[in-house]
Design a protein around this nucleic acid. Structure first.
Lengths: 205, 205
DNA sequence: ACCTGAACACCGTTCAAGT
DNA sequence: ACCTGAACACCGTTCAAGT
């Protein structure tokens, strides 16, 4: 049973889809590969090194957005990151479990900051604004992927009844429309960027 | 060694400060309390039930904001949630590890949606906008608390060198100014809300 | 009502030894 | 170079039995 690094990584992502992050275990992975327990450690130093590689594999290609106006590129990058995280079960949680950015995550950050620099932001504001966009993408996707796996809305509906404003909004809280929910926040942030940016040359719009 | 639920909860929060979330273990908690392993299970059904209680304890009082203009209340609520999460080591990760909202989290959500309804948003937009604000608070705080514990910036500086836009912004990426970083994103989002809201009565501002 | 003692079914990681 | 076999040092959870 000769393995290479790529086979281990592919099997790990398949196992993730099958059992989810909480059940993704070095031992289950070895079993799925038909090898003994310690065999995977020859290819990856540790479980967290494997998770880093999985996260970066998830993000392959997200930074490859076409040229265009800055706001289109920002929106496009955010959507592509979201799609990438949705491509595997618990993808967003895998991404957020990794502290250190690998090449595809760096390329995404670079492209996002690049678009914001072209919008006229300072390097500082571009870096911080990129973070706010990314927080929205990742946190929204984590919440959505957790909700898909979680319990029904009955418990929430009951818990919410003493809170008048929550009760008025309850049908949108578990977000039965994840795409619109995501787009709403993304549009909100891009509107904020535009409002804070000194309008560049051009008569209007 | 007679315990009650509150003593277990207090000890758990103290242990969290001492060792961090990853080392917070039912067994270490029992040892800290001077009891046997299974004793804590009489007071909390499971570790996740204990984490739920810890998360809600963290959020005590965050919803108690004074009356005032909607944007002041939104900003105030976001800052108070951040302060609450910062009050304990890994507080933001504890909060995000809990799927189901307990009373203090519900009260926070209710107050946030209430402020946004007064801004003139529909229930749907208020619920979704509240989420975007909260994503920023929680994700920013998780990142900040992880960075405080993590490695130095050397590895990041090296990794970033092939990426021109990241390199230009690198000094702000590990965020040596967490307060300004947080306020930047919060202001951005509130600006976005204001820009999307049909301006209410009043001549200007 | 609340705790002990002991077990069950797992984990990640390491490492000599094999091929 | 790559894997086996076996161990080490842990986990969360359960539960009869004690007081």
């Amino acid at each position: 049973m000769r393995l290479n690094r790529e086979q281990v990584l592919t099997a790990a992502l398949d196992l993730l889809d099958e059992v989810g992050l909480d059940q993704l275990t070095m031992r289950r992975l070895s079993t799925a590969l038909g090898v003994q327990n310690g065999a995977t450690y020859w290819h990856f130093r540790s479980k967290s090194a494997l998770l880093e590689a999985m996260a970066d594999e998830l993000l392959a290609g997200v930074a490859a957005v076409p040229a265009g106006p800055w706001d289109v590129r920002v929106t496009d990058l955010a959507r592509r990151l979201r799609r990438a995280l949705l491509s595997r079960r618990d993808g967003a949680r895998v991404y957020s479990a990794v502290f250190f950015p690998l090449p595809n995550a760096l390329a995404y950050g670079d492209a996002m900051i690049g678009a914001l620099l072209e919008a006229g932001l300072s390097p500082r504001d571009a870096a911080w604004t990129a973070d706010t966009v990314t927080y929205h993408v990742v946190a929204h996707t984590i919440e959505h992927q957790l909700a898909s796996a979680g319990e029904g809305p009955e418990r929430l509906t009951a818990a919410v009844s003493p809170y008048p404003n929550l009760a008025a909004a309850i049908e949108f809280v578990p977000a039965p429309h994840p795409d619109e929910h995501f787009e709403h926040g993304l549009r909100l942030i891009v509107t904020g960027i535009r409002a804070e940016t000194p309008t560049p040359a051009g008569p209007d719009r």
